[in-house]
Write a protein that binds this DNA or RNA. Sequence first.
DNA 1: TACATTTGTAACTGGTTGGTCACATTTTTT
DNA 2: AAAAAATGTGACCAACCAGTTACAAATGTA
Lengths: 190, 190
Amino acid sequence: MKKNRAATEEKIYEAFLSLLKEKGPQGVGINAIAKEAGVSKELIYRYYGGLKGLLLHFAQKGDFFKSLLFINQKSSSSVSDLQHFAKEGTKELRENKLTQEILRWQLLENNEDTKDLFKFTNSQIGKIFAINDKDTSLNHAFQLMIGGYVYFTLLSKFNKNFITTDLTKDETWDNFDNALEKTIELFNKE
Amino acid sequence: MKKNRAATEEKIYEAFLSLLKEKGPQGVGINAIAKEAGVSKELIYRYYGGLKGLLLHFAQKGDFFKSLLFINQKSSSSVSDLQHFAKEGTKELRENKLTQEILRWQLLENNEDTKDLFKFTNSQIGKIFAINDKDTSLNHAFQLMIGGYVYFTLLSKFNKNFITTDLTKDETWDNFDNALEKTIELFNKE
DNA sequence: TACATTTGTAACTGGTTGGTCACATTTTTT
DNA sequence: AAAAAATGTGACCAACCAGTTACAAATGTA
């Protein structure tokens, strides 16, 4: 057979991304990655230093959130800016499966292996939604609603509904977007 | 040794509850439960029909949310009622580890075994927070914020922070409560 | 007392996990 | 060409998993 380390490393990394996207945190094990990549698992240890090293590589490369980098240029301040960030952010969140699975991961564990990955993800999330540390009711309400958006997005993978709300309908997400927008507006008016 | 089926069944059930509360969904396996109960795992199959049956028993007995039953008497309508439900609900949610782990579970899977359990849990959550199916901005905003509260509660088990917000401080949760309250107020005023 | 039923345990099956090892083959260097 | 280094594979290990089986001991009943 042909031998090509660079290509093999790429196959392993792509297999990891693919599995994380499809199966979530539970799906990324050494055996599963090796099988998906069609390669001996020994090479994962040799080239990346196991799953731990693979995660570190992932965190440093940081090519989740790729499609969002255009946003975090300006520093938000005005109300319409905040509304814009919110709308763009929620849309992206719903479409980016990889990010969703990392966020799901944070609800399951946080050990030495995942530490760096989560740290970087969080800073990116903060930028996307323009979340600052102002101690205002609006900011707290905003964070709560972003958290809710994340929650419902993750929930929708396995559950059709939250109580009576149908998470599969586009209308539901439009309603959430509008409620978020209106809340910002109301807080700003008073 | 002494033989006592009723006592053994209780030991198994308590072991299950204990493991779910401490270790979460990942912690409740047949072997772990049997070990925790100090009993042969065969008995779990014989008395409950395995994990599936144990979950069914749990769902039917429904003694999570025990401490909340006093709430869901009245049907919410007024603004102050909604605020009251929100405040009591969030407080209870933060204190009830068992409920938290079931909610976490819903983010991981939803199969034939867990179906009934989740169904019952959701109806209880709906009652606690007096969530109805009115198609208003306030209702959507409210649901989003309750979702956020659930998210941050689950997140706080493994993560100290959400972006810059310290989830370990009581003050943070007070801020969330106040923001929730104020949002209801603002929506009602306009 | 003798037999049947219930309660309980321990061992075993077949499968999966993460991790390591010895070996073969290809590529590079001398 | 010969030696050395890099690349890749499959087997192996110990630990775990769910589930089943065979058997022992206690309890109930005839």
